[in-house]
Nucleic acid binder design. Structure first.
Lengths: 246, 246
DNA sequence: CGGGATTATTGTCAACGTGACGATAATTTC
DNA sequence: GAAATTATCGTCACGTTGACAATAATCCCG
């Protein structure tokens, strides 16, 4: 891999995290308000420098914990891709490794005065151009959204947006929010419950909501992430998003 | 993204390339023989350090060109993922960004005495444990193979292994080699030619081979990579690999 | 307390995609 | 020319999907 003696170029390396969740049937992304230049006052993805002796995923988890005040991150974290190092930071070449977190809605620290304030923003508003992101974070977000959409098709990771137990309707709301489409409740129910290796009936039911009580499900054992293997399970056949999202 | 003043840790960054091709109906990967420690004499993925002012993809193309003697790389290059930096190089923390090249079979430079010798090795032999790879390159190769398999299902990139024009049988050979399965020629023909936005009939035919002449196809315009967009086209519905590859 | 609204769940049906495999066509090889 | 070889078209049964009807089980409200 190295080919000769001259000391190799070294780069600062950051991790950025696109944390997505669904709240009120709406897809949201975790953003921080930058307190320092460049892009002071602008919104940006949470992230920060990788430290010596750290692996990428470790760094992502640490940064996210620091900036949200959350100890144990819920949901599913995976690497999205790397960007740079050329010309993406006005201060110089910085390589960033973007990550994607699919998580149930969790509260973020109400920031103190000197901390960067993190909050969930509707993706709709960011995409609509109402909000502007720092660096190349808009592009990273776009890639993350596409990845998330595709993940729902081919993996059981839609459930990463839900808690431990959830109803089919809650799961459907996730798909609708991420894909930006409406799905037929009856067909979705058939597909979700009928796909082997996806869901497991808990036997319990919801209560107190409007309408008929719904059965509570959890991820099937084979779709659950384990220590060594952070979820490689595949939905077969896939649950394809409708061709024309509208 | 940065949070305070202390100078951020800097890391050497390399790019590695998993270049795959199909020759004689067999999937092969481009490997070089290391001439220096560590892992001297072992096989490794081609790659090298990212230089100042370079982007990742640029670096990957440059390194591949240097080590194969090939000017313009054929095929499809995409980023696979990043590994490290912790504990993957005995000399210290090195971050590597792995790339995946799907290419038609092209000749590599017969290396001079002092150059690292690059050659196409059957993936089968590497997976069989007959050959051992340096660093964490075995893991990277595994990830690359999985990515390649999945690419064939959901994208028109199988054609990246073929030349400009190809027959359905040649394309099928690619799928068979990458997936490690046999496919029914009649069903594959129906699916390949019947999928909208995938193939385009050139009107020309093969000649000279054994058996009935075959029609020559090329990638449909909408599946062809363009300058700005390096192929985002998707096969819908997907061409799924058989459930039990054997 | 009962009817209406609301949500969940079970079915039905036609259209479509897929796997298995038969049949035919157009070449090369001997 | 006959046999072998490869390409291509067709057929059929089966499973999946989208569209949509029908029923079930709750809450809400007067």
């Amino acid at each position: 891999m190295p080919e000769s003696h001259p000391a190799p170029q070294r780069f600062p390396v950051t991790v950025d995290v696109v944390a997505l969740t669904v709240r009120d049937g709406e897809l949201r992304v975790l953003l921080i308000t930058r307190l320092i230049e460049p892009f002071r006052g602008k919104l940006a993805l949470p992230g920060g420098f990788v430290l010596a002796g750290e692996d990428l995923q470790e760094a992502a988890v640490r940064e996210l914990a620091e900036e949200t005040g959350v100890e144990h991150l819920p949901g599913h974290l995976e690497q999205l891709g790397s960007y740079g190092p050329k010309g993406r930071d006005p201060r110089g070449d910085v390589l960033t490794v973007a990550h994607l977190l699919l998580a149930p809605d969790f509260p973020v620290l109400a920031a103190g005065s000197d901390a960067e304030h993190a909050a969930w923003y509707p993706v709709r508003e960011v995409q609509g151009g109402a909000l502007e992101l720092a660096f190349d974070h808009q592009r990273i977000l776009d890639d993350a959204l596409e990845r998330a959409k595709s993940k729902l098709e081919y993996s059981p990771l839609g459930a990463a947006f839900c808690g431990e137990e959830f109803t089919i309707a809650q799961l459907r709301a996730v798909y609708e929010a991420v894909w930006g489409t409406r799905l037929d409740p009856r067909n979705f129910h058939r597909k979700a419950t009928g796909t082997p290796g996806f869901l497991e009936d808990t036997g319990r039911m919801t209560t107190g909501d409007a309408g008929r009580p719904a059965a509570l499900f959890r991820l099937a054992p084979e779709a659950r992430p384990t220590a060594g293997h952070p979820t490689r399970a595949v939905l077969n056949p896939p649950l394809m998003r409708p061709a024309v999202p509208k």
